[in-house]
Structure formats: structure tokens, C-alpha cells
Amino acid sequence: MIQAVIVEDSRLARQELRALLRHHPEVVVTGEAGDAQSALELIRSITPDLVFLDIHLPGKSGFEILQELESVPEVIFTTAFDQYALQAFEYNALDYLLKPVVPSRLAQAIGKVTAKTVSSAGKAGAEIPGGERRIFVKDGSKCWFVRLADVRLFESKGNYTRIYFGDQQPMVLRTLQQLEDGLDGNIFLRINRQQILNTRFVRSVSACPGQRLLLELATGETVEVSRRQVQRFQSIFRL
């Protein structure tokens, strides 16, 4: 069973989607929201598996809602006319539906979601909690849904933070502190004033003058652990 919420500003559009979803008993609509603020509250409180999200909403856009979420569920965008905006996605971990929605297209989108939730449920035991969590990243016109497990480094750039994953390094308008609060402290460690490291990417450790540590990542990059953070770093690795 997939728990879904519908975020649409038009009541009739929500009703239309509900009507279409009646043919998909595996999807249960557990909530509806008509604007950005109630959508955020709803998604945070019931943590659904799937969100049908309109891009144009009163208050904020659908993209902005995703950026504010600490953990992003599966998303199917619904829009009357934005297929070009949606093509901006680099990691196409989503689908989009154009309204009025063609039933077969909806079936296809739900098929993708079912396949995904089944496979991640199978892996769930093996994964470290929080590793499957994803965040939504938007930099300029490009968007990504990134698994936190794939992020190796967060780097502070004033009010912005650069996020390193794969060969990408987009910037988001959030401070490093704001991001740190939403991260699992057992995996992500503040290694110095500028950087938060995904400790699972560390390949080797070497000592450095001034009681600091030099880390080599699996990608070959090197980062430094400041003196003040060395102890915390060691305590995690002793585990």
C-alpha cells in the first residue's frame, strides 16, 4: 500500500485526481492540501510515501516546498503546462503528469513508484537508517533528488552550502548549520568550520602537524579535520 497526499490548489483538480486514483487501490490518499504552508505541515506530520504535487501553488512553488523538506518522499508532479520546467531534472527520480491526466500515464507513474518502494523496502534492513533519505536540491534551473548516502561533503559558502555528490556540486541557499540540524550525526560529521563530511566516504586517515587529521576520500579528494573536531571523529571511528 502506498500512502499518498495530494497538493493542488484547485478543489476540483484534487477531486479529479482522487477519482482517477480509484482505479489504483494500492494508492491510498491520506491527505490533501491546497496551499504551500498546509502542504508542508501535512507532509511533515504524516510522512507519506508519495506526493502528487502541483508546481503552481499559492505562497510557494512546488519546488520550494521540496527544498524546505528535510526528507523528501516520492514525488509525482502535476501541472497544466510546465513540461519544460520539469525537463530540468538531472536525476529523474520522479515523474510528472500533465493535467488533464491521461489514465494510462497515471498508471505508468504509479508503476514506477510501486517498483521503487518495493525494492527499497527489501533493502531497508541492510541500510543504515537515514541513508535512504533523499533531499531535493535546486540550483538555478537544475534540480536533483539526492540520496543522502550519495552525498560525501557539505561545504559552507556564507549563506549558501555547496553539496558534493557524484560529479555534481550544486549550491543551495541554506547555511551549513541549518543543514547539519537535519542530518544523522552518526554518519555526517562536522570536521571543521566549513565542512560536513559523510564519514562513510573516508578511505584513509593520516596525522597532520598541529594535532589535525588529513582524510583521503574514496574519490581521491582530501579534507582536514580541525583540532577541535578530532576527538569526535575518533570516537565515531572507534565504534
Binding site: 476540483l12 477531486q15 479529479e16 503546462f81 493535467k99 488533464p100
Partner: peptide
Amino acid sequence: HFLFNSLNNIRA
């Protein structure tokens, strides 16, 4: 937007 939203609403 107006065109497709209207059609979608009428469908409902």
C-alpha cells in the same frame, strides 16, 4: 494554464 486547468476542472 487557463486552458488545461479549465478542461481538467470541467472533467471533475
